[in-house]
Design a protein around this nucleic acid. Sequence first.
RNA 1: GCUCGGGUGGUGGAACUGGUAGACACGCAGGACUUAAAAUCCUGUGACCCUUACAGGUCGUGCGGGUUCGAUUCCCGCCCCGAGUACCA
Length: 1147
Amino acid sequence: MDYQFKKIEQDWRKFWADNQTFKAHNTSDKPKYYVLDMFPYPSGAGLHVGHPLGYIASDIFSRYKRLKGFNVLHPMGYDAFGLPAEQYAIQTGQHPAVTTAANLERYREQLDNIGFSYDWSREIRTTDPHYYKWTQWIFIQLFHSWYNKTTDKAEPITNLIALFETEGNTCVIAACEETPLFTAHEWKAKSEKEQQLLLLNYRLAYTSEAWVNWCPALGTVLANDEVKDGVSERGGHPVERKRMPQWSLRITAYADRLLNGLAEIDWTESIKESQRNWIGKSEGTTLDFKIQNSEDTITVFTTRPDTIFGVSFVTLAPEHELVAKITTNEYKTVVEEYITIAKNRSERDRQADVKNISGQFTGAYVQHPFSGAPIPVWIGDYVLAGYGTGAVMAVPGHDSRDYAFAKHFNLPIIEVVQGGNLAEEAYEPKEGKLINSDFLNGLDVKQAIKKAIAVIEEKGLGKGKVNFRLRDAAFGRQRYWGEPIPIYYKDGVPYTMAEEDLPLILPEVDKFLPTESGEPPLARAKDWTYSPPQPSPRGRESVAANTGNFRYETGDKSIWNVLKENSQEHRKNPTETEAIVWKFLRGKQLGVRFRRQHPILTYIADFICIEKKLIVEIDGGYHATAEQQALDTARTNELVAIGYNVIRFSNEDVLANINAVIEQIKAKLKVLPIGEDLGGEYPLETTTMPGWAGSSWYFLRYMDAHNSNEFVAKDAVKYWQQVDLYMGGAEHATGHLLYVRFWTKFLFDLGLIPVDEPAKKLINQGMIQGRSSFMYRFDFKPSLRNDFIVENHNSNLKESDLKSAHDETLSDLFYYTVENSPSVFFSSAYYNDFVNSKFSKESIVNTVKSNFPALERVLNKYGTDIDEKTVSLTPINVDVNIVENDVLDITAFKKWRPEYADATFVLEDGKYICGSEVEKMSKSKWNVVNPDDIIERYGADTLRMYEMFLGPLEQSKPWNTNGIEGVFKFLRKFWKLFHDDQFNFVVSDAAPSKEELKSLHKVIKKVEEDIERFSFNTSVSTFMICVNELGALKCNKRAILHDLVITLSPYAPHICEELWTLLGNKKGSLSFANYPTFNPAYLTEDAFDYPISINGKVRSKLNLSLSMEVADIEKAVLASEELQKLLAGQTPKKVIVVKGKIVNIVL
RNA sequence: GCUCGGGUGGUGGAACUGGUAGACACGCAGGACUUAAAAUCCUGUGACCCUUACAGGUCGUGCGGGUUCGAUUCCCGCCCCGAGUACCA
């Protein structure tokens, strides 16, 4: 049989799935290797041919590593929370979970088609409560941690509390400068609420007031990119900058470690550079300027303290807190006006029009810290409130922004560093001698900076300081489709939920929109409250510090874990009767709160009201047995012993008369006294986590995907450590790739994982762009001269030709005629000539006339008026799937666009050739190529190899199906090596020749080298060369083909598995075969064709033995007849011989 | 503006530490097989000049310089394209 890729590929995909061939094990004698792809967001559009590029590369690498004897972990999952599904939900009312599930299924199907060696048993989805339970859990750990600068790592907040209780807040442990210092005594005197609010300044997850873009009309916070020109992008509602509470993660605490850690990881330089810029470390100093006639000082941050004597004004950000205080009466009105304007521009806007300089003098002055001279204080929106201190000392001579500001407002410019021309521009380089600078005069810039800082610190005017551009990461989103934040509020103070109450399941809501009062969608959820477990009699694990409170604990963790699991399961799958009863009990309908499936002692109660100490049990049929009844009684007794009441109903009771049952419960509640206050109900946080939460730790979960007790087991993470190869797009440089490093370092600090970087090596695959195809439509738009329009109107067209009444303008009438004429398409050569003015409009018109008589009538009538605007060839997008090698399938085109069924085509050489352009792959450009279609036509092995053959992995490039035939041919040739002309499988056991071995070992060596440096495109051509060579040699020797199959198998696994089996090996054993060993002996050559060049230009060749030494080579070359002819009597000045490379003769 | 990539035939690309530029593939042209088509196979294919032919020559890796016996590769200056980032004091 010929190469039947469809059957082969289907069979093998099934074999791998059935046998779980790629299931990774957490214990092995082999060394481990962890290959991770950035998991996809499953969008509705499905995969296009660009998405699998990185997956294919990493799959080749994984398969290669298996052959090299590694225990490979290669998992896949889905990052499924996100905006598109939510937007779709808002529009259609369809639950995002439903859309997501559908998309996910389609993704899986498409991925499966490509033959990846994923261990699907470890699949994770960020939207799965079993997964996000641990995302929430990590958030709780962040909340309960602070960053200890002394030990330079995150520590439990209890350590900090202990410090506060013993030492108070000394300057040594102050996390941020805003936090006031206090003594231990003062700490103890604070109320619980005061203490908690203070601790928020330290927690790694915290709420704070932050500046946001607030849109009152939409009732939501908008991201910077959702605001344009001061109004919301959607709807055009006004947006203002507002301070409001916002959850954030204190990533800034890790700024230095995130920066330094880059040195240890093998990531692309561009990603590291992006992260460095994003973190933006700058070293400088703070400096205080005393305000005249005031007790206050303005603190600025500067990296150029050397230019202190060049300060001619100080500028504050419009939001700076001192602005209102220092503005003099005279300037109050103008300053307020300015602030109002500045406030209504988003930060992005302010940054967008840099040229538009604006500012306002406040009327206030500060004193120069050294000379004491008065310096005016301005406000200007080029100063950002969020960076440094929100105030700058302006040195127009040596800072371009200050320079522009000074020029605009006519402020003095003082030169303090020599070297520039201040009449033209600011002189910014850190080179030159200081002048006009008192004690700094004569120093060069670097010395001056040091000296200035020293003097500033000595005089107590400021402190050397490191500033980062990086800001804390906003963590709350006013969205529905995300992980709920496991926080409840008591007296306005946030507390975390108990870990055993996780996951906090995303609730059902009636709409996925904010509430009328502007709260996030989660505020729509019924009973979105939480009752902390502290006093609840559940079978909880014993906690030493709180032992006194837990009167009913089981004290046994394993029992507790089982109870917890089961109760969650029960809640998800209530029995019919339980569901009926719950309808009447839920939501305090009877005046008190019932919980269902709640652990107590070593049981799970069906319904329990803690305040009234009442348990309601609904017993199924099996309770009728004597044995079971005995157990029930024993259980009731135990519960009674701890003060509980138990009422039992049977299923039949409920089904027969539910009202009677409820009445009994009501009656019982009436007689029971209200118990102690058992905690009560507290409102839950209504914002959800951002998209990057779930992806910040997923690489760990794959190591132990089904663990319900821990986010990852210690021994699993001890074995897999970290990702060895991480493959993904560079667009995540400052998002995901920074956050995942942050979380990893945090988890490392807590001692939960043994490494503090997520991935040793990172490869960024390039983006595959679309290659759009174009057709060129002849368009005729005559200029409308009054005379012929009138004529036209009167003579040719009838009222009934009009499209509609409002089209009754003369121009529309005319276009109607032209537009309804059948179209003419010109092949691309005409278009190119047209663009290059080689093909005139007259020629086009003549071509149209001769090709298409129907249009001739129109042209003859109005065509005298051909000018720049009348005739054009308009490119229109055509579906790339009906274009092959740029040739249009005209029949398919007419089917695709019925409106062009009558169109005429002006061909070249009998074909319609389409033009092309590289654009983003998108539906609207008709340039999306679906991998399924390619696989249908050529098979997955061809797709895999072709994607690799396209070019260097890391380079972005357009998809072009044109070359795929070459790869397909290669696989057929490969298949043919094993078969005779009638496609019978025939291999010979004869000993391979030297030539054949050479061909094979070239591949073994080259492919190994190429894979190790991710140069997959060149290894594909190496395979091609080898198969061409072996084909020419008619080699079908087992010894050669056996090894070749192994080396090719990472690239084209299906065909190789098939041939491997045909070769007589155990079915499916190929994935774990041994990569053949390279033997250099087969490649050694005795002789070499030395290129002989004269003055660097190759003129001749000479075959010489490789064992010859340099001097002998020189002699032999000079003696050769060929060279003597070329020299034509000249004597060489010099002869350069590079052994095994080249001979160069200098004349 | 700054940072990081990149610029090689008609096209995608190769040339790994300076040593025969254009591997491999597409496309194109010619040929074989075939009633025909498909498939397959063979040959040619950077540009220009010269030649009946054999052969030979000149130019050629964005542009201009430099280092070197020798530069796509190293250095200096410039141009263009792509990506990221942007009043960060």
